[in-house]
Amino acid sequence: MQEQRLQEVRAVLKTVDDPELPSVSVSDLGMVHDVKIIGSQVYITMVPTFAGCPALDFIQRDVQKAVTELSWVSECEVQFTFQEKWSTDAITDEGKKQLKKHGIAPPPENYQPGNEWTVACPYCDSDFTSMENVFGPTACRSILYCTTCKNPFEAMKPVVDYVY
């Protein structure tokens, strides 16, 4: 039964979106670190994406609400840990697909911290893109421009473990 309940919680987590990236679940963003179930109580540890992300409180509330809707759950506690490092490598393939579908390019792979980067256009796949502003409307996104289809688009900033 424990295993089944765990899967139910995991499934619910795939339905809760990051308010700043609608249509991409917190689960596919790689924000779920750990789920513990003790009887009817659920304890979820999550990893924040960017430190200055103002959406953390909303995410906490949304996750709690969604999980509590499972009939057997009496209580759900959601905690963020700053002890774990989130990186854009934690975004699942499904997450990347969803991002792209909504005009946000997934982060580039093999990024070296501090280096310049661009990504292919999420609309036409062209590589002829340029960086407009590294800092988009939120800390986790940048604004780029596609020279081929002439669309501006957003991309998730690569955040990877820092090597020094």
Binding site: A51, F82, Q83, K85, G114, A139, K157, V159, Y162, Y164
Partner: peptide
Amino acid sequence: NVAGKVLMEQPY
């Protein structure tokens, strides 16, 4: 650990 996390964002 926190220093490591901040350093992932700070290069920007």
